[in-house]
Simulated scan of single mutants.
Amino acid sequence: RAQAVVKEVSWLTPEHRTTVDALMAGQFEGLGPRKLAGKVRAHAERLDQHGALERNEIAYSERRVTVRPAAYGMAWVTALVSTQQAVGILATLTRDANSVVNSGETADPTDPTGQPRGHGQIMADLFVQRVNGHAPAAVPAEVQVVMTDEALFADGDTPAWVTGHGPIPAQLAKRWLAMPETDVFLRRVFARPGDHQLVGMESRRRAFPASLRRMVVLRDDTCRTPYCDGRIQDIDHATPYREGGPTSWQNASGLCAACNQIKENTGWTHQATPEHLSVTTPTGHRYSKDTGPVLEGIPPDKQEPPDEEPRPQVRATTDCFAKTTQSTLTLRLAA
């Protein structure tokens, strides 16, 4: 984790590195290296917007595809592309592989015995088919990008955040919006004053509805289990549904597939609120993780101190709109 921090601030001036150190003090609890790096990068990009955009432009100019051999007649194909393109590729392949699995047509066409393929194998086959030009019509994929309204409509300095992947300069996100092949859907997401956490919604159904699933993914960003940086694959009932756990914002956790399966083993318990998750292992050890704001990198002077008296969770009056909301841009990208 120390290496992750150093890597993300190495390009900053000593003064800015000191500022990031102060902002991150006491913020390491429950964070894996990937999530921690994203939080640090968000602060770094806010402090030096011009330098961050310059680094992204240099990196984009170095895009390429490489191949290196692997064991037993296999090889690694690596593509260095923009975050926008990479997220779109992964989202499309995952979505279409899920469709194949759900249809039950998982037989391997290259195997005479028709052995079934796993999810990863199907994704790899779809990738090869589409690169070689033998794929069916591409299915649109969604990429969720969170921005403050100030950064979206004016010259705000808070970096945008690609859900599940981390921060990018706000100016780069605006360039994405200007691409003619991108369909843009703008949704307002109301965050609670002070700590900027999302306000929830609730359903009595066992399956989480699409709108609630989307909000949980925005809130948790990556797997919610302490120190896990896995991609969210399941929206889990922290208190199991079979034990009376409601299908609600308060009882929802975004988990990777492995953590969701481990949680079902004897001796594992999750206690969750929208603000906090506590995991108890079969050995009795307890690990905790606090939920961060919906958008990282907001400078301290822009965060409101908590009031002495409670106030409504959602405010929508004109004078406080900029302080209590973030705008979520859902970019639908052609695969």
Rank of each mutant, 00 (worst) to 15 (best):
P226K: 01
A2F: 13
V87T: 14
P169L: 00
N98W: 13
A91Y: 03
T318W: 14
A257L: 09
L152W: 12
A124H: 08
A44Y: 07
H196Y: 12
E29W: 02
A151V: 02
M215Q: 07
T158Q: 09
P193N: 05
N132P: 00
G51E: 10
R46N: 05
V100G: 05
V146R: 05
A2G: 08
P109V: 06
E8G: 01
A335Y: 08
P306R: 13
V40G: 07
L186W: 00
H196W: 09
E105A: 13
A322N: 12
L198Q: 01
Q27L: 04
H196G: 03
R204G: 05
F127C: 11
H16S: 14
T148L: 03
L172T: 09
V189Y: 05
L93Q: 02
G104K: 06
E304C: 04
K174N: 08
R213S: 09
G104H: 08
Q121M: 00
V139G: 07
R64S: 13
A97W: 08
R95V: 08
D236M: 09
A70W: 11
L12D: 01
T247S: 09
Q233A: 13
A258P: 04
A107H: 01
W161Q: 14
A258S: 10
H16D: 15
C223W: 01
M74Y: 09
F208K: 00
T13C: 07
R130Y: 12
E202Y: 07
R68D: 13
T273L: 06
V65P: 13
H119Q: 12
H134E: 07
T158C: 14
E57R: 15
R34V: 15
A138I: 03
Q144S: 12
Y287R: 06
P240K: 03
G38M: 14
P293N: 06
A124M: 04
R117H: 05
C228K: 00
M123Q: 15
K289V: 12
S103F: 07
V87Y: 02
G114S: 06
F208T: 00
Q171P: 10
T324N: 12
P305G: 05
V101S: 08
M147E: 02
E150C: 03
H270I: 14
L198V: 05
G284K: 01
A137P: 07
P209C: 00
G230I: 02
T182D: 04
F28M: 13
E304Y: 10
M24C: 12
T266P: 02
A79W: 03
L152I: 09
R224A: 12
G26E: 01
P310H: 08
V294I: 11
G104I: 09
V128Q: 02
P14K: 04
V101F: 11
A2D: 13
A22E: 12
T92Y: 13
D307G: 15
T83G: 03
V20N: 03
V139Y: 13
T317N: 09
V199S: 05
P306Q: 08
E142V: 11
I89H: 11
G166N: 00
G156R: 05
R213K: 13
M201F: 03
P282A: 00
S288C: 06
R175Q: 13
H270F: 14
A86N: 04
L295E: 04
T94D: 15
R117F: 07
T106W: 09
G200M: 00
A37Q: 14
P300C: 06
I262T: 11
R311H: 14
A79C: 11
H43D: 13
D149R: 11
G292L: 06
T92P: 09
S10V: 10
V146P: 04
Q121N: 01
W176F: 06
V101E: 14
V65C: 06
R64M: 10
